[in-house]
Simulated assay, not measured.
Amino acid sequence: MAFHDIRFPVDISLSSAGGPERRTDIVTLASGHEERNSPWAGSRRRFNAGYGIKSLPEIEQVIAFFEARHGRLHAFRWRDPFDWKSCSIAATPQAHDQPIGTGDGEVTQFRLSKTYASGGHSHVRAITKPVAGTVLVAVNGVLLDPTDYSVDISTGLVTFATAPADDVALTAGFEFDIAVRFDSDTLSISLAALKAGDIPDIPVIEVLS
């Protein structure tokens, strides 16, 4: 299998339904108390692209995309309609949006990430598929010139031309996609059902790296 660096049609994915999924194993003890454990370090996104299908041209577009990916075989880029920026959906990414590390005078590579915080707790999510041309980087709040660093859009690694000095704060703002694959080797779409308002089932699932 391979990753095809092509994005699923955004006008369809933005009308999809879905979101993050976590796995939690729960054991109920004889006392009635629970023991809860999660084997997953993070979450995994699932979506149904069928909610975005509104016309025959869109059906044709999805069929072509599905065939070119060989069904479930090859992964591709997907824009999460609810979470695709380093900031809130309504805002514009800024270089101070997300912390990505602290300089030590030696390390030149840092990974893009996004922090989700609520009630004194947080989760840091690695961003591996930033959108080309959208990444802004700052050192101690000062916006860097794009010539001062490079971004690998296939891994989310930021490489500085010169190692950031000791104790300086590194931050970034960006747009990002996620890597997904189709979660079925079959597309079952009825034009008559679509005209009647029925939603086709086109499941996609995040591929974790």
Results as ranks from 00 to 15, higher is better:
residue 1 M to A: 15
residue 5 D to M: 12
residue 7 R to Y: 11
residue 10 V to C: 07
residue 11 D to L: 11
residue 12 I to F: 08
residue 13 S to H: 10
residue 15 S to F: 14
residue 17 A to S: 13
residue 17 A to L: 12
residue 18 G to I: 03
residue 21 E to M: 13
residue 21 E to L: 12
residue 22 R to M: 11
residue 23 R to M: 12
residue 25 D to G: 01
residue 27 V to S: 08
residue 32 G to K: 05
residue 33 H to Y: 10
residue 34 E to C: 07
residue 36 R to D: 03
residue 38 S to F: 06
residue 41 A to Y: 13
residue 42 G to F: 14
residue 46 R to S: 15
residue 46 R to H: 14
residue 46 R to I: 14
residue 48 N to P: 13
residue 48 N to A: 11
residue 54 K to H: 15
residue 59 I to Y: 00
residue 59 I to S: 06
residue 64 A to M: 06
residue 68 A to W: 01
residue 68 A to Y: 05
residue 69 R to Q: 11
residue 69 R to G: 01
residue 70 H to T: 07
residue 75 A to T: 12
residue 75 A to W: 04
residue 78 W to L: 13
residue 79 R to D: 04
residue 79 R to S: 06
residue 83 D to Y: 11
residue 88 S to H: 06
residue 89 I to F: 00
residue 95 A to R: 04
residue 97 D to G: 10
residue 98 Q to F: 05
residue 99 P to A: 00
residue 103 G to T: 00
residue 103 G to Y: 07
residue 105 G to V: 05
residue 106 E to W: 03
residue 111 R to M: 07
residue 119 G to I: 12
residue 120 G to I: 12
residue 120 G to N: 13
residue 121 H to Y: 14
residue 122 S to E: 15
residue 126 A to G: 13
residue 127 I to K: 08
residue 130 P to I: 08
residue 156 G to Y: 01
residue 157 L to N: 05
residue 161 A to I: 10
residue 162 T to E: 09
residue 164 P to E: 02
residue 166 D to C: 00
residue 168 V to S: 06
residue 168 V to C: 09
residue 169 A to H: 02
residue 169 A to M: 02
residue 170 L to F: 00
residue 173 G to C: 00
residue 175 E to W: 04
residue 179 A to K: 10
residue 180 V to T: 09
residue 180 V to A: 13
residue 181 R to V: 05
residue 183 D to P: 01
residue 183 D to C: 02
residue 184 S to Q: 00
residue 185 D to L: 00
residue 187 L to I: 04
residue 189 I to K: 08
residue 199 I to N: 07
residue 200 P to M: 01
residue 203 P to F: 02
residue 204 V to M: 11
residue 208 L to H: 04
